[in-house]
Amino acid sequence: MADEKFEPNILVFCCNWCSYAGADLAGVSRLQMPPHFRVIRTMCSGRVDPEFILHAFSKGIDGVLVAGCHVGDCHYIGGNYRTRRRVPLLKNMLKQFGMDSERLKLDWVSAAEGDKFQKVITEFTEKITELGPSPYRAK
């Protein structure tokens, strides 16, 4: 098993108004990305309840990326203000659970930033591959 290549499972939450459109743009522009991620669209990054992320980790996901509109650009004005507090606080708590907090990432991708989506996904996939399988996988 040891020499078998590790293929991470990555979950991406994209907000409807910016990041999902950004991901779509990356797709229609045929930008190449590692295929290890699955996207769940939420109306706003503020809709991503920390419980969703904890649930994903408890099911053995290796990394979670939350993507939303840039600060100041939120479709609902202040949704991502909440997200940018929840994610760092959750990271602090995940550290206490013994996890590498880099398994959770927050980034801002606008609808025009297909190339940024590609970059963020590629870097995050590399990071998670380097970290290896989540310690909650076997549980």
């Binding site: 309840d49 920390p50 904890l54 202040g78 507090r85 929840r86 606080l89 959750l90």
Partner: peptide
């Protein structure tokens, strides 16, 4: 809710000095 900690984390972070 499924998780009490996740729930309160969300609530506290939402009102943290915005």
């Amino acid at each position: 809710v499924l998780d009490q900690g996740g729930s309160i984390l969300s609530a506290i972070a939402s009102v943290l000095n915005i």
